[in-house]
Amino acid sequence: MHEYADFDDFVARTRSATLARAVMYCGRRPDAEDAVQEAYLAAYLHWSELREPRAWVETTVRRRFAREAGRWWSRWRRTELEVPVSATSTPDEEAAAVAVLRSVGLLPPRQRQVLIMICLEGLTYRQVADEVGISVGAVGANLAKARERLAVLLGLAAEPHRAGDPLVAGVLTRSGPEGMSGYGEDALAAALRRTERWLARGFDADRASAQRLRAALDRQRDEHR
């Protein structure tokens, strides 16, 4: 079984990180909150069946954004980025995180999707290919383009190709197309992870988003009593 005492404990311990990951995918706080709320509501209905609830919720959120990637991208380009900022965040941390978020938002939907699935979700090329419905080679091509674009936008030096890894530049945790997994902590992957942690700290301190989710869950509980 899982590590959570009950559903409320699960939500309390995973909400901030789940919202942060959702923002990395879609770029808009309202869309992220909608997707996360929908996933938790579904998890509540299936709670007794879930052996790995966090992975289940993360997959549910990811697949929603995969279905509607084009719509999230068009909204991002027209909308000012608004996310909660932790009181402990320094100006430099905020500036760096916002720069990453805005740069990721300039990527085409498929490139952004593949980038987050591999660099943050830790999925293999094969897992991404099967879930998105493209070839392993297309996964590598989209990832390479995303990394090259972000390296330019963020002023990061591109990592050299590793021998035997023709698809992408960077430090891979495994080699070979079938087993390729997420990047190691190269400069770009580290920047993405720092940004996600910065977002999670902001959501952790954001009482309003926690209250909105709690109210939605309470309504669902009332409906199923």
Rank of each mutant, 00 (worst) to 15 (best):
W198K: 05
L188A: 07
S181P: 00
D6C: 11
V36E: 01
L217F: 09
T14L: 01
A210S: 13
A97I: 07
R78Q: 15
A22Y: 01
G122H: 11
A39H: 00
T59K: 13
R225V: 13
V139S: 06
A96F: 05
E49W: 11
R110G: 01
S103E: 08
W56C: 08
A5G: 05
H161I: 00
A97H: 00
E94V: 03
A39G: 07
A96S: 14
W198Y: 15
V85N: 00
V104T: 14
A22K: 03
A69C: 06
R54E: 15
S74I: 09
G170D: 05
Y125K: 02
G105R: 02
Y40P: 02
H161M: 13
W47F: 09
T195D: 03
M117A: 15
D8L: 04
D218A: 15
D31R: 11
S86H: 10
S135T: 15
A169R: 15
T60K: 14
K145T: 11
H224W: 12
E185D: 15
A22C: 05
P166T: 08
N142L: 05
R67K: 13
G179P: 00
R29T: 07
L156R: 07
R149C: 01
A12L: 13
L115R: 03
R29F: 01
P84I: 04
E178M: 11
P177I: 03
L199F: 07
A189I: 00
N142S: 15
L143M: 11
V171C: 02
E196H: 11
G122P: 10
S175V: 10
D165P: 00
L120N: 08
P91M: 08
G133A: 09
R207T: 08
V114D: 06
G122T: 10
R221H: 02
V100W: 04
S103M: 04
D9W: 11
R75G: 02
R149H: 12
Y183L: 10
A200I: 04
L19S: 04
A191Q: 09
V136S: 01
W76D: 06
D222G: 06
L19Q: 10
L120H: 04
D34Q: 14
S181A: 15
F10K: 09
D130G: 02
D8H: 11
V36G: 02
R64K: 13
A141S: 14
L143G: 04
T195E: 04
S135M: 10
A157H: 09
L107M: 08
C26G: 14
L107T: 05
F65L: 12
V104I: 14
V11P: 06
R29V: 01
S181K: 14
R126N: 06
A42M: 10
T14G: 04
T90H: 05
D31I: 01
T90S: 15
M24T: 01
A138I: 03
A205I: 01
D204N: 12
Q111W: 09
S181L: 12
R112I: 05
R214M: 11
E68A: 14
A190I: 00
A169T: 03
P108I: 07
L120S: 05
R75V: 11
D204K: 08
G140P: 04
R51N: 12
L172Q: 14
L188V: 06
S103A: 15
A169Y: 13
L101G: 05
V152D: 14
R162L: 14
K145A: 15
D34W: 07
G164V: 06
A158W: 05
D222R: 15
L150Q: 04
E80S: 02
Q220F: 00
L150M: 11
R64A: 07
M117V: 00
T90Y: 04
E93R: 09
